[in-house]
């Protein structure tokens, strides 16, 4: 199984763990991840405005290069995934955006959303299968873990199509696959406060702590996430007293490749 792989800038700096353990786990599971050549930052957030074309171009370039490789594109950072998947949807379904983006890029073959974008979690669930991961686990993680989805993996569900946006199970199923026990907490699919970590910490604090408090009240010994900014907010602003870790790190640990 060979995939194009988009790490994104945060995974090369502050969130190295999310990247490194994604790669080592993939290798252990027999999946080849080929890093997209000369990738650029996805832009961090998707711009919803119709007339914002330039902010979508870097994502289009990534999508095109996966298309040219003839492989599906795997992302692992929730924010990159959200941006790239939504831009891909625009290129497929929004003629206004796709025409202008293609005019600007002047590529030999215009891009029409051909690439299939999947998140690393979807790779685990749909391509490898949680059952097979369960079999590959060497060190079961015997902990009670609360999964934090945040908003980016799930919404808008019509585009992201990962899971039921209000009652998701992909992370809980993952937690079960690595031998741990999921703890369902309130607000697991609500926003952590996101980029307000920069401009208004009180907002980030209020939003993150709701989930953290609920998780700790429910007896979680650990919190799991797929997004560097969520991880930061839950830790720094949510005041988590239990470890907050990337799902890839736990996967690598379970597979014995950490």
């Amino acid at each position: 199984m060979k995939y194009s792989y988009y790490p994104g800038c945060t995974l090369k700096t502050k969130a190295k763990d999310l990247d490194i353990y994604a790669r080592s786990s993939a290798e252990a599971l027999g999946v080849e991840l080929v890093e997209v050549k000369e990738w650029q930052c996805c832009g961090g957030v998707y711009t919803t405005a119709q007339d914002e074309i330039a902010t979508k171009l870097s994502a289009v370039r990534t999508l095109m290069s996966a298309r040219d490789e003839g492989t599906d594109l795997v992302t692992v950072c929730a924010a990159c995934h959200n941006v790239i998947k939504r831009v891909n949807d625009d290129m497929r379904n929004n003629e206004y955006v796709s025409t202008r983006a293609n005019n600007y890029l002047q590529a030999e073959a215009p891009y029409a959303g051909e690439t299939r974008v999947i998140h690393f979690l979807e790779l685990l669930r749909d391509e490898i299968g949680f059952e097979n991961i369960k079999k590959a686990v060497k060190n079961p993680i015997s902990k009670k873990i609360a999964a934090y989805y945040g908003c980016l993996l799930l919404r808008p569900s019509s585009v992201m199509q990962m899971d039921n946006p209000e009652n998701p199970s992909i992370l809980e199923d993952f937690i079960k696959a690595i031998g741990a026990t999921p703890v369902i907490s309130a607000y697991r699919n609500e926003c952590c406060g996101s980029y307000f970590a920069v401009t208004d910490k009180s907002i980030a604090k209020r939003n993150s702590s709701k989930f953290v408090d609920s998780s700790e009240k429910n007896g979680a010994e650990m919190i799991l996430t797929a997004c560097p900014l969520c991880l930061y907010n839950l830790k720094q602003n949510g005041g988590a007293s239990v470890p907050v870790v990337y799902f890839t790190e736990l996967l690598a640990e379970a597979l014995g490749v950490k």
């Binding site: 209000e166 369902i184 309130a186 607000y187 609500e190 609920s214 009240k217 429910n218």
Partner: peptide
């Protein structure tokens, strides 16, 4: 939104 926070429905 309705969430269950420790047995109470919020």
């Amino acid at each position: 939104k309705i969430v269950n926070d420790g047995g109470k429905l919020i």
